[in-house]
Simulated scan of single mutants.
Amino acid sequence: MLPYTGASSGSITSALTPAMSLPVLRVLGQLDNSYIIAEGPDGLYLIDQHAAHERILFEKIGQQRSQRDMEVQGLLEPVTFEVSPRQEAILKSRYQDLAEFGFSIEPFGDRTFLIRALPALIHDKDWAGMLRELLDSLSRGDKSDWAEGVTITMACHGAVRAGQSLSEPEMRELVRQLEQCATPHTCPHGRPTMIHLSSSQLKKEFGRT
């Protein structure tokens, strides 16, 4: 995914909220099954649900890994996983590195591996596609570079998607967790998680100033 390069223009001048903690927000609803509409002490917040959940998961994964307390989901039946020759070489050299992120993987024949456990947040997602993407990222850069890349990839694949309908309790919980993030205003790729329209901006747009 390409990094965010700037806010789009529109009839309303949208200001990205400064890098500071979020106020307590009240969820009003969902727009286009992609954006959470919320009210704060100073206006309206339009939250990108995928980008916001990416930020939440990115910080959660990083914290669990640093504390060596990654949440793992064991599989009732181990699953076989086939890889390319290049991915096989990378995987054989990165068992321990991947174990730090919650993967339990064993060799199981020619270019085939047995998956016994996965990070809990992706066990019901497209983990096979994500694991292949992780193996490709492991082939680039040193450990400090790819470790962050692995965390970003896991957060992206584990996050709710744009176009996914969320219940009101789910929206409230997502916003609550975003409020607790250290860097709530951008996703791990650098794109904004929200647009804030202050009360003064809204008054100006409606000719009330």
Score class of each variant (00 low, 15 high):
E71F: 05
M130C: 15
A117D: 09
V72D: 10
K60S: 11
E148K: 15
W146Q: 07
L57R: 00
L138R: 12
F103N: 02
W146R: 13
S139H: 06
E133A: 09
P85T: 02
H53S: 02
P119S: 09
Q63L: 10
I61R: 07
I56Q: 00
A117H: 05
D126T: 00
L98Q: 12
E148Q: 14
V72Q: 11
D124T: 12
V150H: 13
S139M: 09
I61K: 05
R65G: 05
D124A: 08
F108P: 02
I115D: 13
E100N: 12
P85G: 01
P107V: 03
F103S: 04
R65C: 08
H123V: 10
L134Y: 01
R55G: 00
L76Y: 07
V79A: 15
A99I: 06
V83G: 05
A99E: 15
M130P: 01
K143M: 14
I105E: 04
I56P: 00
Y95E: 13
F81Y: 12
E88N: 10
L114H: 03
G149N: 14
R132Q: 11
T151V: 11
R68F: 06
L91G: 06
Q73D: 15
G74A: 13
E106G: 02
G129F: 03
G109T: 07
L75H: 09
D124I: 04
Q87R: 09
L57D: 02
R86M: 09
A147I: 10
E100T: 06
L98F: 03
K143C: 09
S139N: 13
A120Q: 15
V83Q: 05
K125R: 15
I90L: 15
L138P: 12
S84H: 04
L75S: 09
D69Q: 14
T151G: 07
I61H: 07
K143Y: 10
K60E: 15
R116Q: 14
S144I: 07
S84P: 04
T151Y: 07
V79R: 13
A120T: 07
G129K: 02
K92E: 15
E77N: 09
G109P: 03
A120D: 15
I105F: 04
D69W: 04
H123A: 15
E54T: 00
Y95P: 10
S84R: 06
L91K: 04
T151S: 13
K92I: 03
F101V: 01
T151F: 04
R65P: 06
W127S: 05
F58S: 10
L121Y: 12
L114C: 11
I61S: 06
V83N: 08
I105Q: 04
I122A: 02
M130N: 11
S139K: 05
L131T: 08
E106M: 10
A120S: 14
L135S: 03
L114Y: 02
G109I: 05
